[in-house]
Amino acid sequence: MPPLIQFAGVSRTYGRGEAEVRALDGVDLSIERGEFVAIMGPSGSGKSTAMNIIGCLDRPSAGKYLFQGVEVQDLDQDRRALLRRHCLGFVFQGFNLLARQSALENVELPLIYRGLPKAERVARARLALHKVGLEGREGHDPSQLSGGQQQRVAIARALASDPMVILADEPTGNLDSQRSHEIMQLLQALNRDGITIVMVTHENDIAAYAQRLLVFTDGKLTRDEATPALISRSA
């Protein structure tokens, strides 16, 4: 069985000529089903670019990106949208919920684009909210929820369409330490249920929840190892 996510010599450049910036430079990596991977690295190291490419929001300038063994780097915008709709879930640092819609409506959003009927959408959205521990808050607007609760809604939204992978871009960046650990425990629980998680973070103690650590430096993958014991829990 091919790896779930595989990069073969992936590069991403912005601009041309003198102003050319190499955000990613010939990266090879592969992520198997069920892994929980943390990506770290300083600003400008290419970790966000890697996330965007994995999430089919961006395309590599060179190299191949295989999803379940299928080359997806050359797919057009609509096909990439389809892939996001059916296989990927996003969790962002800034939550990115629709402000004037209730928690339930926010979680329904990806299901609308899958063309599911209203009743099924509501049922699945309620289930997803239940999984993240927000039952009873379905009718609340994001402004009526705490940061931690908003991030739970965002995770529920990612979960609602039963994705293979959840891509979390600094999911705890806007949360205090207590809430951060709650969110990480939630992600860990989802990972135990079989969902592959790829997460970008700055913080060692957050990365410690993952099983594997990728470190990017200057557009290259410089470390790829099991989460070291030294940054585990104690740190």
Binding site: D78, A81, N96, R157
Partner: peptide, 16 residues
């Protein structure tokens, strides 16, 4: 713009 970004990220096609 942000709302559109969110919609695109969760799988809306350009056509939608």
């Amino acid at each position: 713009t942000r709302e559109i970004g969110i919609r695109l990220a969760v799988g809306a096609s350009a056509r939608q």
